[in-house]
């Protein structure tokens, strides 16, 4: 299944990947092969089968609504490349 260069560029953009023209061509070919592989599933008759997102259908477990503070804010901030005070610092986001 052929994937157009524009489609590859779009998907790369959504994933915030900067790809060269050469990479776009290579990855386009590889993505096509992956889709062809998965396409084998089209041979199955799935009429009347509910979409399955999980192998178990027991229902999700719950937690009770009790607040338990996480004690180590410093550890969270230490994972980030930058901070200011108790906040994470990120590259400036231009809002309207």
């Amino acid at each position: 299944m052929a994937i157009s260069t524009d489609e590859v560029r779009h998907v790369a953009r959504l994933a915030r990947l900067a790809l060269s023209d050469g990479e776009l061509a290579t990855l386009g070919g590889q993505l096509g092969q992956i889709l062809d592989y998965v396409k084998q599933l089209d041979r199955l008759d799935t009429a009347g089968v509910l979409p399955t997102s999980h192998a178990v259908e027991t229902g999700t477990p719950f937690r009770e609504d009790v607040a338990v503070p996480f004690p180590d804010r410093e550890a969270l901030l230490a994972n980030a490349p930058d901070r200011e005070g108790d906040a994470f610092r990120v590259p400036r986001v231009i809002e309207d």
Binding site: D82, E84, D86, A87, F88, V90, P91, R92, V93
Partner: peptide, 18 residues
């Protein structure tokens, strides 16, 4: 929540409070 421009004058970037 994002605070744009940082919390103090001359501060760079945006601050994220989660």
């Amino acid at each position: 929540k994002l605070i744009h421009g940082g919390s103090s004058a001359g501060s760079q970037g945006s601050l994220a409070d989660l």
